[in-house]
Amino acid sequence: MNEHTNDRVPFGFWVYLMSDCVLFAALFATYAVLRGETFGGPSGAELFSLPFVLAETIILLVSSATIGLAMLAAHHKKKKEVIILLLATFALGCAFLAMEVSEFAQFVREGHGWQQSAFLSSFFTLVGTHGLHIFLGSLWMLVLLFHLLYKGLTPGTRSKLMCLTLFWHFLDIVWIFIFTFVYLFALL
């Protein structure tokens, strides 16, 4: 594979990420408009537990760093290191998902599901869409791990890892804004 295609793949992926950014913008706008419409149900301030969300944020931040280091290790052709760091990222991604699902399950159990108010509908859509991205990213990571084990560090797997790294960093950036606009702003 020549240098040209190696450069074009991440660029095409970057264009996809920016269009995903627009998708999240629409969901953020919906949430911002509907956040006050609680229809007699609980508001964000009554529902959210800030220390729990801080733990989620830190898990995602650490996973963003570990996948960046995996990319760096791939650049230095250290296959074993790449696999260990990707496994760590995968574990952190799963931990994040588990925390998010348990948060959602708790809300639904208490009767505050997405059908209760416009605020909760938009909350579940926004945070759930981010969670779905994390879920798909984790699946992608698993597939890439098998690729790495069987094919090794080829230009093909490196380019896939590059895209996954961009994707994961992007999801961390989206989470910063969810943490700020959804969780922190609800408690102000």
């Binding site: 801080l54 931040l61 650490v62 760093a65 960046g68 760096l72 650049h75 943490f179 700020t180 922190l184």
Partner: peptide, 23 residues
């Protein structure tokens, strides 16, 4: 284009600092 280990450590610490401060 891939950065260095220093850039990741700095970016990570800075992000932790911002998150912690806001929280």
């Amino acid at each position: 284009a891939y950065g260095s280990i220093h850039s990741y450590i700095f970016g990570f610490l800075f992000s932790i600092l911002c998150t912690g401060l806001a929280f």
